[in-house]
């Protein structure tokens, strides 16, 4: 059988086990555990889910079922500067799609992908609750409001170095 395992470092395993322990190894705390792990690793690769499965003593299939259910969890690493375009209704009617198209064009990637140098990744999300600023773009933790397609180049320029 072709089982290829990507090794987690021991401290990574210990970290995950520790997280499980802080939540009493209770399977009902799965989502909290996953949040903490994603915050730490940036994403939730299969290996991490395996260790969580061990820590919480629950089938890894169930964990994968949960990870794939919630859009907040991701199994692919994000770019150094993750870009999220809000496609909530308020942003949509104010032209968020055109902004998204501009990002796609500028970066040459589709939603859910990262640039080759792993600098940027592109995702869309539903309403960050800043509808007053529609259309809204998030780059990392920074929020850009009232973004027009013409602004895209300048936004990307900020992260050139």
């Amino acid at each position: 059988m072709s089982h290829i395992k990507i090794e987690l470092r021991k401290e990574d395993v210990d970290f995950i086990k520790g997280v499980c322990a802080t939540f009493n190894n209770d399977p009902q705390e799965l989502i909290n555990v996953l949040h903490t792990c994603q915050e730490h690793f940036g994403y939730l690769p299969a290996e991490v889910q395996e260790v969580v499965s061990d820590g919480l003593n629950m089938p890894v299939a169930k964990i994968y079922g949960v990870v794939t259910f919630y859009s907040f969890f991701t199994m692919t690493p994000k770019g150094k500067h993750p870009i999220s375009i809000c496609l909530g209704t308020a942003c949509y009617v104010r032209g968020a799609e055109k902004v998204l198209d501009e990002f796609k064009k500028e970066l040459g990637i589709q939603v859910g992908e990262s640039t080759k140098d792993n600098k940027f990744s592109l995702s869309s999300l539903r309403c960050v609750g800043a509808c007053g600023l529609a259309p809204v773009v998030l780059v990392g933790d920074k929020t850009y409001g009232r973004v027009a397609p013409d602004d895209v180049k300048n936004i990307l320029k900020e992260y050139e170095n």
């Binding site: 989502i31 909290n32 949040h35 259910f69 969890f73």
Partner: peptide
């Protein structure tokens, strides 16, 4: 607190 994870 319990956190949601992006499911409407």
């Amino acid at each position: 607190l319990r956190y949601g994870a992006g499911a409407f």
